[in-house]
Amino acid sequence: MARIVSLADGIAELVHDGDEVALEGFTHLIPVAAGQEIIRQGRRDLTLVRMTPDIVYDQLIGAGCARKLVFSWGGNPGVGSLHRFRDAVTHAWPVPLELVEHSHAGMANRYVAGASGLPFAILRGYAGTDLPTVTETIKFVTCPFTGERLAAVPALNPDVTVIHAQRADRAGNVQLWGITGMQKEAVLAAKRSLVTVEEVVDELTPVPGGVVLPGWAVTAVAPAPRGAHPSYAHGFYERDNDYYKQWDAISKDRDAFTGWLGDLVGSAR
C-alpha cells in the first residue's frame, strides 16, 4: 500500500541528489508543485527525464538542479521557447546541461520497455534523421523474422517517477483521467514513485477512460491541491494560459528569473 505523506516529506525521502527523475505529464496533470518542492529542497546533479519538458523543467534547470536532460520536445507550449533551457544549453548557465534527445515515439517506447521489464524497445523510427548521430541510445537492429531494419531504444527505469493525479483513496490507489500521456508507464518503469493528488477520498468512483494505479504499485501519495497549476487538472481547474505567457518574460532574463527563484525558495507551499 502506498503511504500518504506530505509533499515535503515525500520529496525528501524519495528524490536524492544525482537521481534519475521523471516528472511526467503531457500538457495535462503536470506535477509542478512537486518540481518546485525539489527546487526548494535544493537537489543537485539530477538527470531529468520527460517527453515534453516545459515550464517546471525550465525552472528546475534555471535553479541548477539538473546536469542532464532526457527528452523529446522542450518548449513553452503555445508560447515559444524555454529560455532557461536554452541558456543552459548555449551558455552553460547556471551549470552545463547534457542532452539526450529522442522523438516522442522513441521516448514513449523507452517507458513501455521500462514498464514491461524489457531491456529495450523497437519501433519504426529515426531512419534517415540526424538523431542517431547525436544520441547514443538510438541503435538499429534487424528483425529476426522479416529482416526489416528497426530502431532500438533502451528501457527507461528512472530512480523515481513523480506524477500528479486527480485523486487517491486512503489506501493509496490512484485515479487519473483525461489526457493521461505516459504516466502509467513512467510509474511502472520507476524504482520508486510519488503521486501528488488534488484530493484524498474515501472511495474512488469509476470515471470513463480513467486510469487506476493500484496502491501496491506506488511508493507514496502526497496531497497537493492545485499541484498541477499552471497546467490543468481535468474536472478540477483549467489551464492558466496567462501564466505560460508571463513565464516567457520571467525566464528570458536571468535577473528576473533569479528574483522569481528567490521568492519561490523563500516561500513554503
Binding site: F26, T27, H28, M51, P77, G78, H104, A105, A108, N109, Y111, V112, L123, R124, G178, I179, T180, G181, M182, K184, E185, G209, Y232, H234, E238, R239, N241, Y244
Partner: peptide
C-alpha cells in the same frame, strides 16, 4: 493553445495513451 488542451480530450472520440498513438495508430 497546446496539443494537450482539455477541449481536445472533451470532444475526442477516444482518449488514449501516448505510446498507443504512436505504436497502434501512426506506425
Amino acid at each position: 493553445l497546446s496539443i494537450g488542451d482539455g477541449v481536445l480530450a472533451e470532444t475526442a472520440d477516444a482518449v488514449i495513451g501516448v505510446a498507443e498513438v504512436f505504436n497502434y495508430w501512426l506506425q
